[in-house]
């Protein structure tokens, strides 16, 4: 049988636990959406020894990120490849064909983080599945995350090999005419998702 004092103490536990939980639990990842006007998704390829930049004008991104909640943080991007603009009508027309992105069959590329993120000095590394032209490749995606009050910037630069995705195979595989390495430059301005 409990004494009044013991009952008071027992009643105090949940309060104490709740207080402890509030103190100790890391912040849950914040759900962000992208501000399309300020964000950019570009790639830098090489054609006949000269760099060119393509802009993926239309994409959607959902980011859940908390620097201390990396296990629950996720990156999820979907890109409309038909919106690619390389500042050359002829090049853009070529990219639409089956040799390159094959818009008729695979107009969308996706990027999804897999598993927990790993912390770095100024952000994190996500392992992610990148799907282009129906081909999936697991890539490491290191990014810098800079919080500015409620908004945040996510910046990254990764180098891909176009042949991993079957982009320009066969005679088009000639590295000296169209380079194999393509740098992808990501600049996302994030704002908290309205729930």
């Amino acid at each position: 049988m409990n004494t009044p004092r013991q009952r008071r103490r027992a009643a105090g536990w949940p309060v104490a636990l709740a207080a402890f939980a509030t103190f100790a639990a890391p912040a849950a990842p914040v759900a962000y959406t992208v501000d399309p006007a300020q964000s950019s998704l570009t790639f830098v390829g090489t054609q006949q020894g000269e760099k060119f930049t393509g802009t993926i004008k239309s994409f959607r991104a959902a980011v859940r990120y908390g620097p201390t909640e990396l296990a629950a943080s996720t990156l999820d991007v979907s890109m409309d490849l038909k919106s690619i603009d390389t500042r050359s009508g002829e090049r853009d027309a070529a990219l639409a064909t089956a040799i390159w992105f094959d818009y008729a069959h695979t107009p969308t590329a996706t990027f999804k983080s897999v598993g927990p993120l790993r912390a770095t000095r100024d952000g994190a590394v996500a392992d992610a599945d990148l799907v282009i032209k129906g081909k999936t490749k697991r890539i490491a995606f290191p990014f810098r995350f800079t919080a500015n009050g409620a908004t945040a910037n996510l910046d990254a630069r990764v180098t891909l090999d176009r042949l991993d995705f079957g982009l320009g195979a066969g005679e088009w595989a000639d590295d000296s005419v169209i380079g194999h390495k393509v740098d992808v430059v990501v600049h996302l301005v994030l704002k908290p998702a309205a729930n």
Binding site: Q47, Q48, G49, E50, F52, S88, G89, E90
Partner: peptide
């Protein structure tokens, strides 16, 4: 004006005279 690169015998790239302009 077509926006194409100009590379002399795969050795050296030459500058663009103008921006791409249809």
């Amino acid at each position: 004006a077509s926006g194409f690169p100009l590379r002399w015998f795969k050795l050296a790239n030459l500058p663009h005279l103008v921006e791409a302009d249809p």
